[in-house]
């Protein structure tokens, strides 16, 4: 049996008791609360209103990525095949060429989802878009590896892909995982895997801003 140390035991509230053989309970000291305080932006990786940093947009078949008239990034995912459109950047100002995901608590992503999925039932074609469009943001390291996927529908309070422009906090735990090298993140994207042959996607992911948060 472990002996209790004859020390002064202090409760966090200030109440205390002194004993050689007995101890009263401790409350606890708060060391972290993700629900308190506002996220502190470390740098803005992308803002539709700014031309810096310079972006490199790479489309793939079924996954076109382009800038819209207002400067937003538009990932346009079509068909039912796999696609992997990506966006990388060049260092500029306080935006580094790469960043270590573990240095940040998360990302603030201002985005919305548009579009539908058509599904064939015999001769009928119906719009079968669900609340969750199963589209996920990936971060990609300088070796071209995706280090994780974050589906905004997992994060929103209503568990739906946001159809209105929404600022989402995506915790970095999605991207800092055992077995994945997230020390040099150099791109992001919206990869999709091949779907069923009867499904025909026509989705847009519109991103207005991405900021890294300490």
């Amino acid at each position: 049996m472990r002996a209790l140390k004859p020390t002064l035991i202090r409760r966090a509230a200030g109440a205390c008791c002194l004993t050689l053989t007995a101890a009263c309970a401790f409350g606890f000291d708060v060391v972290k609360n993700i629900n308190s305080g506002k996220p502190q932006v470390a740098f803005v990786l992308f803002d539709k209103a700014s031309n810096t940093p310079e972006l490199e947009l790479k489309s793939t078949p079924g996954g076109e990525v382009k800038r819209t008239a207002d400067g937003s990034i538009d990932f346009h995912l079509t068909g039912n095949g796999a696609a992997n459109p990506t966006v990388s950047w060049k260092a500029a100002g306080d935006v580094p060429a790469t960043f270590n995901a573990a240095d940040y608590s998360g990302m603030l992503v201002t985005c919305r989802f548009e579009g539908v999925m058509h599904r064939k039932f015999g001769n009928k074609i119906i719009d079968q878009s669900g609340d969750n469009l199963w589209l996920s943001l990936s971060l990609i390291n300088n070796k071209g590896e995706s280090v994780g996927l974050a589906n905004p529908a997992d994060i929103t309070d209503d568990r739906k892909s946001p159809r209105e422009t929404t600022e989402l906090f995506i915790p970095m735990l999605y991207f800092v995982r055992p077995g994945f090298d997230s020390t040099h993140i150099s791109a992001f994207g919206f990869p999709v895997i091949a779907g069923r042959p009867e499904n025909d996607r026509d989705f847009h992911v519109i991103i207005e801003k991405i900021a890294l948060v300490r």
């Binding site: 101890a23 309970a25 401790f26 409350g27 606890f28 000291d29 708060v30 060391v31 972290k32 609360n33 993700i34 629900n35 915790p171 735990l173 999605y174």
Partner: peptide, 16 residues
């Protein structure tokens, strides 16, 4: 209510 017989810390963090 959470109590212990040792000094301890409390945190609320994300859990995926």
């Amino acid at each position: 209510q959470m109590l212990a017989d040792q000094k301890f810390t409390g945190a609320i963090d994300f859990c995926y």
